[in-house]
């Protein structure tokens, strides 16, 4: 009667089940060409971000290639079009555009990832608590969320920027707080509410599980797909907002794609196509590519986890 299931064999089966489950989801994700393009682009940007310190330490002369204070006196006038030495030329201050582009990638990753982490954490804390416990907690926390819903992060950050110049971790943090406590918290709350009213939660309570057990084993895993999608879209929003702020010079004097575009639009006229295209196009395309990459991954995640979109 008693089926002896040896521990080792059980582990194998557990892994197989896990693989079957994640296998189908990963399979659905990878089956979408757009997801692959997105992942590949993110990979390229990742390499770019890693390349900068390596190049600075090995090939590039610090005085000539520093993204902020570098100056190449051997090539004038600046901005100078691409040469074998400066593959993307130099900007109006004589700084290497490629070096700037690579540093900008690092800033974009930093802004995006910090904002996403903060937003996800706060939306789970606020929305999860409100949805799970309900009652007064719900009323009070959703009151907070309602206030934040009314504040679109780019606009609020521009106003912040008029008062004081922000550094990029501040931009990331504020964007994360604003979007995490606003719309995302509301969505997480409604999703938590759906989960907590399913009868497997009642079964878990009957098993003797307390709030911590239910939140950890049932609510949080159920929220994960939603949070992944939120995180990805927060990256896009935060990076665009940071570029907007630094384009308008509302940030401190660090280098990002936004400030590069601002440099570029001084030496390039869109309507007459006069001037140096190589200063403005690289950061512009980089920004577009970076945001599209995360957007594509987000769409693909949505396709996998949102059953109404799933095409079998």
């Amino acid at each position: 009667m008693a089926a002896m299931v040896g521990v080792r064999r059980a582990w194998k089966q557990r892994m197989a089940a896990w693989q079957r489950r994640w296998g189908t989801e990963v399979g659905l994700f990878l089956r979408q060409p757009l997801a692959l393009i997105g992942l590949a682009l993110i990979g390229v940007f990742g390499l770019m971000a890693l390349a900068h310190p390596v190049l600075m330490a090995t090939v590039w002369n610090r005085a000539r290639f520093d993204p902020i204070v570098g100056y190449d006196a051997s090539q004038t006038p600046h901005p100078h079009p691409p040469t074998p030495q400066h593959l993307l030329g130099t900007d109006g201050f004589g700084r290497d555009v490629l070096s700037q582009l690579l540093v900008g990638t690092r800033v974009s990753f930093g802004v995006g990832l910090i904002a996403a982490a903060v937003a996800v954490l706060l939306s789970v804390l606020l929305g999860g608590t409100a949805g799970y416990f309900g009652g007064w907690a719900d009323a009070a926390l959703m009151g907070v969320a309602d206030v934040f819903v009314l504040m679109p992060p780019p606009v609020v950050l521009l106003i912040f920027g008029l008062l004081l110049r922000l550094n990029w971790p501040m931009v990331a943090l504020s964007y994360g707080v604003l979007s995490g406590l606003g719309a995302q918290a509301v969505v997480v709350k409604s999703h938590t509410l759906v989960l907590r009213n399913r009868s497997f939660i009642e079964a878990a309570r009957l098993a003797g599980g307390g709030h911590f057990h239910i939140l950890r084993k049932h609510i949080l895993p159920g929220l994960m797909p939603l949070l992944a999608a939120h995180a990805v879209f927060t990256v896009v929003g935060a990076v665009l907002t940071e570029s907007l702020l630094s384009f308008f010079s509302r940030t401190t004097y660090y280098l990002s794609w936004g400030s590069m575009i601002w440099m570029g639009q001084q030496s390039f006229r869109w309507f007459t196509l006069e001037g140096q295209w190589h200063v403005i196009l690289p950061p512009a395309f980089a920004l577009m590519g970076f945001c599209s990459a995360f957007y594509l991954v987000g769409r693909a995640l949505d396709e996998v986890f949102n059953p109404r979109l799933r095409r079998v």
Binding site: R14, S199, F200, E202, A203, A204, L206, A207, G209, K217
Partner: peptide
């Protein structure tokens, strides 16, 4: 214990059968 009406609702879709059945043992 209680047995619920809808077996499509009462089992967590993200847990294996073993994890579901062993949950009371785990908690207790």
């Amino acid at each position: 214990q209680m047995i619920f009406q809808d077996p499509y609702e009462s089992l967590n879709p993200r847990m294996t059968i073993y994890d579901t059945v062993a949950e009371p043992l785990d908690v207790q």
